[in-house]
Every structure is written in structure tokens, then in C-alpha cells.
């Protein structure tokens, strides 16, 4: 277990399995090389990508299939290679890779998700990167509407929304 100082959840003990190396960082954050994936039931459907080195840096994200259940991956061969994945085919969403869309908040307007540049996490090698698509099939600012949240009793009974038991 790893003690991680987080932006939203105080200090958490995280399993090694939720720590991902980003050898290239993220665009505009190239110096941040390690992120922890945090899921908090109270925060669902949002998930959190917390920088290990910088507690104040935590991206809000959504599993890409929550944003678009028909999303089709198109990770470029050189990106697959960087992730340690088979370069001859697209990886299987869910089993081989966890794929997230980073979310931007816009006050009263709908939040938007970046479907053009999904964060791809290779579960086995625990390597991650933001794999910018070469095509223009998906928007970098796709408005996200209400989603059916996973069954979560705490969300429906009016309990205060932010006493989470985050998992990471």
C-alpha cells in the first residue's frame, strides 16, 4: 500500500494496482509522471486521476463508456507500443485497458468530456498515457448529460454527498 496525499480525499492508502506510470506525463503536465486512479462511491459516476507528486493536481474523469456507450478506440500504433500493448490490434476496453475521458467543468453549463484524447490505462503494465486520436471522429469537448449511475444506495437517500469511502 502507498500513502497518497489527495486533493479531495485527504490522505489515502492506495493499492499498488491503482498507481499508473505516465512516462510522458500528460499534455501541459509533462512533469507529472505518476497518477493514482481513485473511485469514490459518493463521487460516482466520476472517477479521479490524482497526481502522486502534486496533491493539488487531480483530474476529474469519466469512464469513456459512461460518456458514450458506443465509443470506439483508435489508439495509434506508436501509442500502443508506449503502453506495452499489442500494436497490431486495438486493446479490449475493460479487460486490457481502462479508458477515461477527462472532464472539464463549466459552471452552470454541462460538463464536457475530452473524447478526442482519452486517457488509456494498461491494466497489466500499469502504464498510462493520454492517447490523442489521429482522426476527428470525436469532440474534445463533448457535453455530458445525466447518466444512469451504478446502483448506489447512499446516493438516493439524501445522505450528505461527500463523506466518501474512496477506493484506490
Amino acid at each position: 500500500m502507498l500513502s497518497v496525499e489527495t486533493k479531495y480525499f485527504g490522505t489515502l492508502l492506495c493499492a499498488e494496482g491503482s498507481v499508473f506510470d505516465f512516462p510522458q506525463g500528460l499534455p501541459a503536465f509533462e512533469e507529472e509522471k505518476t497518477f493514482v486512479l481513485i473511485e469514490a462511491p459518493e463521487g460516482a459516476p466520476l472517477v479521479f486521476l490524482q497526481s502522486l507528486a502534486r496533491a493539488s493536481l487531480c483530474f476529474v474523469a469519466l469512464p469513456i463508456l459512461v460518456v458514450d456507450q458506443n465509443y470506439r478506440l483508435a489508439v495509434a500504433p506508436e501509442d500502443l507500443e508506449n503502453l506495452g500493448l499489442d500494436t497490431e490490434r486495438q486493446p479490449e476496453l475493460g479487460s486490457e485497458v481502462t479508458v477515461l475521458a477527462l472532464v472539464s467543468l463549466h459552471g452552470e453549463l454541462s460538463p464536457t468530456a475530452n473524447l478526442m484524447a482519452p486517457v488509456v490505462l494498461h491494466v497489466k503494465s500499469r502504464r498510462g498515457m493520454q492517447a490523442i486520436r489521429r482522426d476527428s471522429r470525436y469532440s474534445h469537448a463533448y457535453p455530458v448529460e445525466a447518466q444512469p449511475a451504478p446502483k448506489d444506495p447512499a446516493s438516493s437517500n439524501g445522505q450528505k454527498a461527500w463523506s466518501p469511502e474512496p477506493k484506490c
Binding site: A28, V103, S104, L105, S110, A117, I132, A146, Q147
Partner: peptide, 30 residues
């Protein structure tokens, strides 16, 4: 696309006090 992603990331990273997040989560839930 890289430039756009840098800008998106910078904006996404700025986001969000806990209150903003709570609002967003409420919006996203049916």
C-alpha cells in the same frame, strides 16, 4: 490536437472545489 489537449487539460486541472464537484455529480445523476 496536442495544443487543444494541452488547453483542455489546463482547464480541467483548474476545475473544481468540492462544491463544484457535488454540483456536477448531481447533474450527472439521473
Amino acid at each position: 490536437e496536442l495544443k487543444i489537449t494541452q488547453e483542455q487539460n489546463a482547464h480541467a486541472a483548474n476545475a473544481a472545489s468540492l462544491e463544484d464537484l457535488e454540483q456536477t455529480i448531481k447533474k450527472l445523476r439521473p
